[in-house]
Simulated assay, not measured.
Amino acid sequence: MYQKKYEELKFTDDFMFCKILMGNKDICKEIIELLLGVKVKNIVYLEEQKPIEITSDGKGIRLDVYLEDGNTVYDLEMQTTISKDIAKRSRYYQGMIDLNLISRGAAYSELKESYIVFICLEDLFKKNRSLYIFRNICVEDRELILGDGATRVFVNASGSRDGLTAAQTAFLDYVAGKEPTDDLTTKLSEEVQRARDKEEWRNEYMTLLQRDREKYEEGKVEGRAEGKAEGKAEALIALVTDGLLDIDIAAKRLNKSPEELLEIINNNRK
């Protein structure tokens, strides 16, 4: 089982993505404004990889970078692999975020505007666009927007750069693996380099890595001894939970959908 060394991590790796955006408000703010064309006043982080577990059966979600700015909430997700289930996962995330806001005492009329943003390396919709922005509209009159305050955005780093600003192009090129070419991407590259020198983060990552290696090896032994897949599943679930393996990759290896694997993970948290 190949696992990246800490010094090999890039901005698009989940561990690094979360650490950098949760540790630098200015960069996080700049990325949100760049992708969404909104003005962010004051970022308030709610929790690193925030868990939302509010249903009666304990099922929930774990968000990468979740934050508030006044009457708006943002969830930023790094997605290095694509599956057909991502759109439905975004729907599930939206529902859970709304339930979380309501559970904190808000009336329906007080629900905050929300943006769920998946930053993808591949094109989910195969239309060669770099930005796909979805809001609820009327089928009979497409100029009529429902106005429920919910927006879901899928960023495609491999799409056409037509219509994008120079800054958006530079950011998506950087996400796609190219060298930094402007102020923001240079700052991101520098943050990655600085992160690689942080012993606390390195130790955290290595601890997670070692724990998951042990679980993976235990899983292989159990799988051979019992002729079952439980050990392998446990090891892969640990990797997903610690942000070291994308849920889509793990689900594929277990012949499950990401939603099925997410349900297993949340049941294990009970």
Results as ranks from 00 to 15, higher is better:
Phe154Trp: 02
Met16Asp: 06
Lys41Met: 12
Leu111Lys: 04
Asp26Thr: 14
Ala195Ser: 15
Val175Phe: 00
Tyr2Phe: 12
Asn136Phe: 13
Leu261Ala: 07
Tyr2Asp: 00
Leu76Arg: 06
Tyr2Val: 08
Ser83Gln: 02
Asn268Tyr: 07
Val175Tyr: 01
Gly227Thr: 10
Ile61Asp: 08
Leu144Val: 15
Ala87His: 04
Phe125Glu: 05
Ser83Phe: 00
Ala225Phe: 14
Thr12His: 07
Cys28Tyr: 01
Ser130Lys: 03
Asp197Glu: 15
Asn128Arg: 05
Thr81Met: 13
Asp64Leu: 07
Glu33Gly: 06
Arg194Ile: 14
Val73Thr: 09
Glu214Phe: 12
Gly60Lys: 06
Lys84Gly: 11
Leu245Pro: 09
Leu262Thr: 09
Val44Ala: 13
Cys28Ile: 11
Glu222Trp: 15
Thr81Phe: 14
Tyr6Lys: 06
Tyr108Asn: 11
Ala167Cys: 11
Ala251Lys: 05
Arg196Val: 09
Asp246Pro: 04
Thr241Tyr: 01
Ile137Asp: 05
Tyr205Ile: 11
Lys220Val: 10
Lys59Cys: 08
Gly159Ala: 14
Leu184His: 07
Leu9Trp: 01
Thr207Ile: 06
Lys5Pro: 10
Asp246Met: 12
Gly95Gln: 01
Lys5Val: 06
Gln79Glu: 05
Met96Ile: 06
Leu34Met: 13
Gly243Arg: 00
Ser90Val: 07
Leu9Arg: 03
Glu140Thr: 13
Gly163Ile: 09
Asn24Lys: 02
Arg211Asp: 09
Leu239Gln: 07
Val240Pro: 02
Asp212Pro: 03
Pro51Phe: 03
Asp182Met: 06
Ile249Cys: 08
Phe15Ile: 03
Lys59Ile: 08
Glu8Ile: 10
Glu179Ile: 03
Lys39Arg: 13
Ser160Glu: 03
Tyr216Asp: 01
Glu30Gly: 11
Val221Lys: 15
Gly243Lys: 01
Thr55Glu: 09
Lys228Cys: 13
Ser56Trp: 04
Ser109Met: 05
Lys252His: 13
Glu222Thr: 03
Gly37Asn: 02
Gln79Pro: 03
Met16Tyr: 02
Gly159Pro: 11
Arg142Lys: 15
Asp64Met: 10
Tyr115Asp: 05
Arg104Pro: 14
Ser114Cys: 09
Val65Ser: 12
Val221Ala: 14
Val192His: 04
Ile249Met: 14
Ala251Gln: 05
Ile247Thr: 06
Ala150Arg: 13
Ala106Phe: 04
Tyr132His: 13
Pro180Cys: 01
Leu21Asn: 09
Leu21Trp: 08
Val38Ser: 00
Gly223Phe: 07
Val240Lys: 05
Asp57Arg: 15
Thr169His: 01
Ala250Asn: 03
Lys88Gln: 12
Glu110Leu: 03
Glu191Val: 04
Arg224Phe: 15
Arg62Ala: 08
Glu263Gln: 14
Val73Asn: 06
Gly219Asp: 03
Ile31Arg: 08
Val117Leu: 12
Met206Leu: 15
Arg202Cys: 09
Asn203Ile: 01
Ala229Asp: 15
Thr181Glu: 07
Leu261Thr: 02
Lys187Tyr: 04
Asp242Val: 05
Lys256Trp: 02
Tyr6Glu: 07
Phe134Ala: 13
Leu9Tyr: 00
Asp75Tyr: 03
Glu48Asn: 13
Tyr132Asn: 09
